[in-house]
Design a protein around this nucleic acid. Structure first.
Lengths: 218, 218
DNA sequence: TTATTAAATTAGATTGATCTAATTTTTCAT
DNA sequence: ATGAAAAATTAGATCAATCTAATTTAATAA
């Protein structure tokens, strides 16, 4: 099948494409992969030969349908393993990313389908990210950034855009938990600090940086 | 840490040593690893540099204490994952080997210790093989081959020496299950065919080849 | 004990993934 | 529209793991 390295490239390209549907730049990919640009060029040529990416010299590249399928399958693996690690083994949500990065490369349809069943066909991972189904269909999310909302609006906290352990444990410490209903009490003009009302808790003040990493639904 | 390849070499050397405490031959290791002899020589030099094996040119080699520790840790991983796959995910005992070969290379003390706890600190894997504890201690087994026993003896079926899927599913088909108490009714002089009495079942006849792959305790 | 066979090692190549340094292509601001 | 800066690619090396072919070392059988 594909090497771990190839799979990691595919995942990275997928995530870079997610934002805007544009082609991806060599330098951007090199940056997220933590390698130097010529390594990316080399790898892209190999993957282009396998029809995983469409690539035109010096013009950027994007995943083919086949490449997208592989990327989504790996993301499915990653997120299902994260659910396992948190729900079954008792890891915290800020501990599971690196482990899932290893587990996501286990190649077995049978394993993933049994795991999915064992976990009760979860729809989202511990960070609120949607889990693609076995056919690679990813439910479209209608969430928006808390930072884009105005005073008085309310919604449910359903995901994060920053998955770093430091941000996640900051949220734990602040008592902001996935699924909480949040109401915006006030937005400070000067520095865009948000004052939040969490159901059943006292008011919490968070910076713009934090508000800009929280996804809100409904 | 160590590469998957190195870990697989260590595991293979460990298994070859297990039988007799002698040094291992390059050709034997090449055979079980499915590579050609010069690859083994190269790899051994690398591993000798890392003090994982002691190696004297053209004289064979054996694991150092350090090498043994790594090998046992991988075997622990492998067997714990097999328990997970069978007990939690519902795989059959003849399906789990290849999957566990992938899972055993996940590097995380924390993961393994949580998995061990989640599984209830099992002592043996689904094939009856003992699981080393977190310190790498492997309980000595006192089992013997069924083929070495005489008519009239009885004991509990606690393990196999042939782990192939074909042998395991043959046992399923024949109704011979791990934990069964087996009594030897008769051993045919001519071809060493064994007639067995399984508790609560009718008599079963198995070939010497089969009797020679069943481990009996007590 | 010595010649033959078997096993192990060395030599030299290959493949995948990476690097640095040099070169080419693209972008973009004047 | 053209020249400087940025981005991408090519060229040439390196490292890990493997190979084949050639050579050396060890085992063994007459």
């Amino acid at each position: 099948m594909h090497s771990f390295t190839e799979e990691n490239y595919l995942k990275a390209i997928y995530k870079l494409q997610e934002n805007n549907e544009e082609v991806v730049a060599t330098s951007a990919l090199a940056h997220v992969m933590g390698v130097h640009a010529p390594s990316v060029t080399d790898m892209l040529k190999k993957m282009a030969k396998k029809k995983l990416v469409s690539y035109q010299k010096s013009k950027g590249f994007k995943l083919t349908e086949k490449g997208k399928q592989v990327a989504v399958a790996i993301i499915r693996n990653h997120r299902l393993w994260e659910v396992f690690l948190v729900d079954k083994l008792g890891f915290r949500w800020d501990e599971v990313h690196d482990l899932a990065e290893q587990l996501e490369h286990i190649h077995s349809e049978a394993l993933l389908s049994k795991l999915d069943n064992y976990l009760g066909y979860p729809k989202t991972d511990p960070h609120g990210d949607p889990i693609p189904d076995a056919n690679g269909i990813l439910p479209a999310s209608k969430s928006v950034l808390l930072s884009s909302l105005q005073t008085g609006s309310r919604g449910k906290f359903t995901g994060v855009t920053d998955h770093s352990a430091s941000f996640l444990s900051y949220l734990d410490k602040s008592g902001i938990t996935l699924g909480d209903v949040i109401k915006i009490k006030h937005v400070e003009e000067y520095d865009k600090t948000f004052t939040l009302q969490l159901k059943g808790k006292k008011e919490t003040i968070v910076s713009f940086k934090v508000a800009n990493s929280l996804l809100i639904s409904e």
